[in-house]
Simulated scan of single mutants.
Amino acid sequence: MAQRLVPVISMQDFDRRKEEITQQLIDAAENAGFFTLVDHGISKEEIDAQFAISKAFFNLPSEIKAKTPHDTTTNNGWEYKAQLRPSTGTYDQKESLWLQRHSYWPSNEDVPNFREQTTDFMEKCATISDQVFSCIAAALGFPQDYFRIANDPNQPDCLTQLRLIHYPASENAVGTWRAGSHTDIGCLTLLFQRDGEDGLEICPGRESHSSFAGGDIFTPLSAETGPIVVNIGDMLMAWSDDRLKSNFHRVRAKEVGKSPSRYSIAYFNQGRRDFVLQGPLKKYPPTTVAEYFAQAVSRNFSRQAIASS
C-alpha cells in the first residue's frame, strides 16, 4: 500500500474562507484521518515557550514531579512509563503530565508561571478546536456550535485534557516503539512537535480495531515546530456514523544509533461526560460520552493501562 500524504490546511482568514476550509477539512478527515494546520493563530514563539516550560517540568527530579501524582480516577497528573499498549505488550517509553483546567497543577515555586502560561496555551488550543469543530458540525448537518458545546472545557463535566509528553533519550531503543500503535479514544487531537524530534508515524488506513494496523504501512511524519498535526479520534468517528476516520499512529525509535529526547504536546478534545453521543444517521444507539469512554477503555486497554491515548 502506498504511503498516504497528510493534507496541509491553512486557517488564514478563517471567517472569509470558512466554506473552502470546511471542504478541505472534511476531505482530509474522511480520507486520511490526519491533517496539518498552518496559519492557525498560535505563533512559533508561543509554541516554543510552551515547550520550554514543559521541558522545565520534566527536568525536575522525580520526587518533585511526583508532587503532582497521577490519579487513575481522573487520569490527571504525572506518570512515568505507565501506559501499557496491547499492540506491543510493553509500556510506552515516555513520561507525561496530564492536565485539566480544574485538576491539580505543579506549583509555580517548582516551575515559575507554569499554570498561567499553560492555561493560556490551552485556551488557544480550544479556539482552534472550535473552528475545526464548527466546520465538521456544518458538514454533518449539526448546528454550527454543536461540537463546541459538546467539548466546552469550561464545563465541569468536560474530559478534555492537555498532555505534555517527554520521550527520554535512549541508547538501546533501535527499531522499538516509544509509543505503540493506537488510535485516540476522544474526538479531536491537536499535536505539537519540535523541529528535528521525529518518530511519529501514521497509518494510511484503518481496517480493524483489533489488528492495531500491524500488517499495514506506516508513514513517517517529520516533526516541525509551528504546524499542528490534527487527527480524528474514535469518538468523533462514531459520532459521524463512521464518515470520518480515526486512524492508527505510533512513535518509533530511530533505526540506527541513539534516539534523542523527544517532546510533544497533545490537546485532546474528549467531550463532556453527560453529553449524549449519536450521529445524524443514528447508525449507533445513543450513549453518553462517559459511557463511550468506559466501553472504549475496556475494549482497547488492559487494566494497567492509562484510560486515554
Results as ranks from 00 to 15, higher is better:
Pro143Asn: 04
Ser107His: 08
Phe57Val: 10
Glu79Gln: 11
Ala213Glu: 00
Gln3Gly: 15
Ser261Leu: 09
Met122Phe: 05
Ala296Phe: 08
Ile26Gly: 04
Lys44Ile: 14
Cys125Ala: 02
Tyr167Arg: 03
Arg252His: 09
Ser96Val: 10
Cys203Trp: 00
Tyr104Gly: 13
Ser264Tyr: 01
Gly214Trp: 08
Pro286Arg: 09
Tyr91Ser: 11
Glu171Thr: 12
Val38His: 01
Gln3Ser: 13
His102Pro: 11
Arg178Trp: 06
Ala266Lys: 03
Leu162Arg: 02
Lys18His: 14
Asp195Leu: 01
Ser129His: 04
Asn269Pro: 03
Val111Cys: 07
Lys282Met: 11
Leu221Glu: 09
Phe51Met: 06
Trp177Cys: 10
Phe58Lys: 04
Pro7Met: 06
Ala52Met: 12
Thr127Asp: 12
Trp105Lys: 06
Leu99Cys: 09
Asp234Val: 01
Asn300Glu: 10
Gln12Lys: 14
Glu19Val: 15
Val297Asp: 07
Ile53Thr: 15
Leu5Lys: 14
Ser103Lys: 06
Ile232Gly: 01
Val297His: 10
Glu171Gly: 10
Leu190Phe: 01
Asp145Val: 04
Ile128Asp: 00
Phe275Glu: 06
Ser308Pro: 08
Leu99Gly: 02
Glu79Lys: 09
Ser87Phe: 00
Pro112Thr: 00
Phe133Arg: 05
Leu159His: 10
Ile217Ser: 11
Pro143Ala: 04
Arg115Glu: 15
Lys258Ile: 15
Gly279Arg: 02
Ala294Glu: 14
Phe35Glu: 00
Phe114His: 08
Ser134Met: 09
Phe147Trp: 06
Leu221Gln: 09
Thr219Arg: 03
Ala305Met: 03
Leu99Arg: 03
Phe192Gln: 02
Trp177Gln: 07
Lys245Leu: 13
Arg273Thr: 12
Pro204Ser: 13
Leu281Trp: 12
Glu255Met: 05
Asp242Glu: 15
Gln161Arg: 15
Thr219Cys: 07
Leu37Trp: 00
His40Lys: 02
Phe51Lys: 05
Ala305Ser: 15
Leu37Phe: 02
Gly271Val: 03
Phe248Val: 00
Leu200His: 00
Lys67Arg: 13
Gln100Ile: 08
Ala137Ile: 02
Arg4Val: 14
Gly226Cys: 03
Val132Arg: 02
Lys55Cys: 06
Thr88Arg: 07
Ser170Val: 09
Thr225Val: 02
Leu60Arg: 05
Met237Asn: 04
Ala126Val: 12
Ser302Cys: 08
Ala290Leu: 12
Pro286Tyr: 08
Ser246Tyr: 00
Ser210Leu: 07
Ala294Gln: 13
Asp48Ser: 13
Ala296Tyr: 06
Glu109His: 13
Pro69Asn: 10
Gln295His: 10
Ser298Val: 11
Ala137Phe: 03
Ser170Asp: 13
His249Thr: 02
Pro61Thr: 03
Tyr80Val: 13
